[in-house]
Design a protein around this nucleic acid. Sequence first.
DNA 1: CGCCTTCTTGATATGGGTCAACCATGGTGG
DNA 2: CCACCATGGTTGACCCATATCAAGAAGGCG
Lengths: 214, 214
Amino acid sequence: MFQSYAIARDAAAQGQRCGATPVAPKDDTIRLKADEAVYSEGEYAFAIYQVEAGAVRIYRLTSNGQRYILSFCGKGEWFGLEKGNVRTDFAEAVCETRLRLFRSNRDAVVPIDLLHIALTNLAKAQCKQLVITEQSALRRVAAFVQEMANLHPGEPEFDIMMSRSDIADYLGLTVETVARSFTKLREKRILCLTGKLQRVVRLLDREALIALTI
Amino acid sequence: MFQSYAIARDAAAQGQRCGATPVAPKDDTIRLKADEAVYSEGEYAFAIYQVEAGAVRIYRLTSNGQRYILSFCGKGEWFGLEKGNVRTDFAEAVCETRLRLFRSNRDAVVPIDLLHIALTNLAKAQCKQLVITEQSALRRVAAFVQEMANLHPGEPEFDIMMSRSDIADYLGLTVETVARSFTKLREKRILCLTGKLQRVVRLLDREALIALTI
DNA sequence: CGCCTTCTTGATATGGGTCAACCATGGTGG
DNA sequence: CCACCATGGTTGACCCATATCAAGAAGGCG
């Protein structure tokens, strides 16, 4: 996808040592409201993004219209790096979100380590594969809560922001099963839920939560 | 992990265009028998590999001893590129296999596009996520057969080499369910199985197979 | 021959999907 | 202000797909 990536490839093919270093112009900050799109499948991929605040969901639609969420990206995380130059998935703000956009641009000012980003995303995807294939619904939801908790280190209470339907499409479950799993976690006194949409989590027993995700 | 990768990072941090280009000495070919290990979890990661012939399974072991196969790598595919410098998974030959090893080495002769490899593996992992979460056992097995068929283009009959247990651990199913799915595919006249271990597939109805995987 | 491994098939149990109802909250318009 | 509706979450009843347990078939090998 990336221009500079293509440049890097060509240079590498000629035996030179040459990396991809796209660049951010002075101010390429994007502000999005909940559910606003960053990009869609089929579009030309001209940039990558870093989340400054809020969260983004990356998803695909199957031929029968099912949505499958590949990943959520929180503060500091990168997304939008693709193999080709056409988007293969959709990116949308989960809630009010601020992004920083980095176009492919030779005149590097802020160099970006694309390989590091790619490998981080690969590791994330592999970890998710384990969670999804090996574990029961309760464990998957526990792993998800754990993941969210890690985005808010030290905070006893945090807003997960995603709807039950987001969580379901992320974990490969149904909304009902997600809701039931949350009530089980409540019954086990592992967490409690507050907020009008029950999206604010207070962890009561982090040990027990971790024990579930093993 | 990779030395040259670290080098690339530093160079990039100085605003230069500089890529990672590990190198293959004249002859770093590895020959393995079935089930021989390439590397194991915890080892120091000093190289990446390309499959020249045969196949490799990349897997992890969960705390309860369950094996989970992240991917199979066939002819031409690369593996062993990690984020850190310690192996997080195991790599083993599925059958008699020949690999080419590429150490991290500045004195590039054969430059390698690590970003391309990372993004290819990421795309593969994402595709697998979709298969596993969205689909029934029959569809997963169909997708697997499809994947194997793609490694043997034009051949009407091919040996998948993996055991039922490999396939099960790859698709997040049990051996029994995999066997049942294969018999369903036979009953539907989509393929037939031969060979003493029923691992040689002859595709009878490729259309129907593809229709299942959609 | 007996024992092993790998695959297959059958019987049964269960986790989670599906369908349906209900609750809480918030917005809209009369 | 209240009646109405829409949205998102929870809960219950039922059923099916797949895990689990168990046994059998086919080949390899000492």
